[in-house]
Write a protein that binds this DNA or RNA. Sequence first.
DNA 1: CGGCAATTTGAATAATATCAATTGTAGTGG
DNA 2: CCACTACAATTGATATTATTCAAATTGCCG
Lengths: 231, 231
Amino acid sequence: MPKLDESLLSDLPPFSLLERSQIREVLDHAVSRRYEEGTAIFREGHDADRFYMLLDGYLRVVRTTPGGDQIIVLHISPGQLFGIAPALQRDTYPATSIAAAESIALSWPVSLWSDFTTNYPGFATESYKTLGQRLGQIQDTLTEMATQAVEKRVACALLRLVNQTGRKTEGGIEIAFPVTRHDISEMTGTTLHTVSRLLSAWQKDGIVQSTRKHIVVTAPHRLVLLSGIEG
Amino acid sequence: MPKLDESLLSDLPPFSLLERSQIREVLDHAVSRRYEEGTAIFREGHDADRFYMLLDGYLRVVRTTPGGDQIIVLHISPGQLFGIAPALQRDTYPATSIAAAESIALSWPVSLWSDFTTNYPGFATESYKTLGQRLGQIQDTLTEMATQAVEKRVACALLRLVNQTGRKTEGGIEIAFPVTRHDISEMTGTTLHTVSRLLSAWQKDGIVQSTRKHIVVTAPHRLVLLSGIEG
DNA sequence: CGGCAATTTGAATAATATCAATTGTAGTGG
DNA sequence: CCACTACAATTGATATTATTCAAATTGCCG
């Protein structure tokens, strides 16, 4: 295993308050791994034996119903902790994490969790902040799902992707990892057919530009209007 | 202010590991208050200046959209901590809490949060366990909302109420606080009309028995079937 | 007893899912 | 390099569910 460089973590909030030597310790206990697109990092209901930090790539956090339907609960971007079930005193993961693009993550055994929270200033704080944000995000999604029509939900989902992972290109803001119509339908609780129709219509209107697994939002402001965020 | 009795807390998980004297300290810092049905304990977005323990009654946790629609995110039963935004490093409450029935709650200023978590064994653990359960619950609701048809969602919502707050009576299991058709529609993201029609049909089928603001489930097993929890 | 809130119910409508078939695109291996 | 295959996307037609609109009824509280 190659030695990991300290600069990997030194700017990330959970570790930004640490001394160089502490970061060294953290890295020395970490396992680094690469995940192919489509691979599961861990699965819902399994023993939560490790916690993670995403260094590069993007993840989908997914739940599956007994009936086999899937929904995408949220996405994870580089620099975020995930699989931090131990923070909530859970001994199993509450959802499945799948690499939405080729990804790299560090991980540590849960047995180190209490060491981290007690010895490393800012680590606990940041972890709980992350959880708080995620809880808020899920509540937002729930509220949206319960009250908004499909078109608005899809618009909101796209905007969320754009805000979290978008990068500017000529011609608009591009979503940084592969997304299919089907993925979006799983984020919004609709069918890929409906999503396809909506995206086609928006493309005709010049709001988005999309090819296979790839979406560029060309007129974000108009998408915001469609999303119905009233003042 | 009357002195609060130690037996109030001694059996509740967050405090069950404490010495008598510690419970005394906790109570001496607590403010006890009664809330009329329909009263807000705190509101979404406001400064999270206190955290709470529900002693008696029931609460609805509610979010409101810019458009004025409301949804009920979850319910809180006696013995549960709530308003524990500080645990997630939030400085505002992420939702509104309303007394669904006349209720009594203790509260403490957030400034005591870190004292509680560091000095009182088991308190932090239980708080985070509660959050973990709540996060799981919300994810369940989200998944359900995204994948299930209205009838199943309403069946699930009723079952959830029954499981959390139901008490056996002759003739079935009764939901322990006032619930309107409108409330159920806000739990399930549908209209009160649809809920009314469903309950009427179920009543005709002998599955529930309901009067104004009051529901008794007479055939829980059949409701489970309707809820579509497949093996 | 009056009035408000909760509930019920019918009919019309619109949104979205379902069904079904086709086209397009990328990757694979001969 | 091309054919083959698997996956992704499009699109029309139809079916259906649940909302919306509208109105009436019921029960409770003061």
